[in-house]
Amino acid sequence: SKDTIRINGIDIDVKDLHEEWKRLVEEALKRGDEELAIELLERALKE
């Protein structure tokens, strides 16, 4: 798994994120759902 995830052309540092969150965000991006990916990231970062 990578340490960054690219959303809207912005590389976001996710190395401190739990693997499960990372996977969910990557799944959302694979489906092209950037809005969901951002929402998941925000939730993950609050934890």
Rank of each mutant, 00 (worst) to 15 (best):
A37K: 00
N8A: 07
A44H: 05
E34Y: 07
R43T: 12
D3Y: 01
K22A: 05
T4Q: 06
E27K: 05
D11H: 05
R43E: 14
K46G: 12
K15W: 06
L41W: 06
E39H: 10
T4G: 02
E34V: 14
E20Y: 13
T4R: 03
L41D: 00
R43G: 07
K22M: 10
N8K: 06
E26G: 09
H18V: 08
R23P: 03
K30M: 12
E42D: 12
D33T: 03
R23E: 09
E26N: 15
A44K: 02
E20G: 11
T4E: 06
L24C: 05
E39W: 09
A37W: 02
I10Q: 11
K22I: 15
K15S: 15
L45W: 14
A44T: 01
E42V: 06
L17V: 09
L29R: 02
E19H: 14
A44F: 14
D33R: 04
I5A: 01
D16C: 12
A28Q: 01
K2G: 15
E27M: 09
L45K: 13
I38A: 10
S1F: 12
R31L: 11
H18P: 14
W21L: 11
D16M: 12
D13C: 05
D11Q: 05
I10F: 07
L41Q: 00
R23D: 06
L29Q: 02
I12T: 04
D11A: 07
E26P: 00
K2A: 15
V25F: 05
R23L: 10
A28D: 00
K22G: 05
G32H: 06
L45E: 08
L29K: 02
A44R: 01
L41M: 06
E47C: 14
L40I: 13
K2L: 15
S1H: 10
I7C: 06
A44C: 03
W21V: 15
D3A: 04
I38W: 15
K22S: 04
K2Y: 14
E39I: 14
A44S: 04
E20P: 11
E47S: 07
E39V: 13
E39N: 10
K22R: 15
L45V: 08
L24S: 04
E27C: 08
R31K: 12
K30G: 12
R23I: 11
I5M: 05
L17H: 02
S1A: 11
E26Y: 15
K15D: 06
K30N: 13
S1T: 13
R43A: 13
T4M: 07
K22T: 07
E27I: 07
E35H: 12
L40T: 04
E35L: 14
L24R: 08
L24G: 03
V25W: 03
H18E: 12
D11S: 06
E20L: 09
E20M: 12
A44N: 02
W21K: 03
E42T: 08
E34T: 14
D11V: 09
R6K: 14
R23A: 12
A37Q: 00
L40P: 00
V25I: 15
D13V: 09
R31W: 12
I10G: 03
D16W: 15
L45H: 10
I5T: 01
W21C: 08
I10Y: 09
V25Q: 00
A28F: 04
L41S: 01
L24F: 05
D3P: 05
G32F: 05
L24M: 10
L29S: 02
E34G: 06
A44W: 13
E47V: 08
E42P: 00
D33I: 02
L24Y: 05
E47N: 08
D13A: 06
A37Y: 01
N8Q: 08
S1C: 04
E34M: 12
E42S: 08
E39D: 09
E42Q: 11
L45P: 04
K46S: 14
E19D: 13
I5H: 03
T4K: 05
L17K: 01
W21N: 04
D13Y: 10
I10E: 10
L40R: 02
G9K: 02
K46W: 10
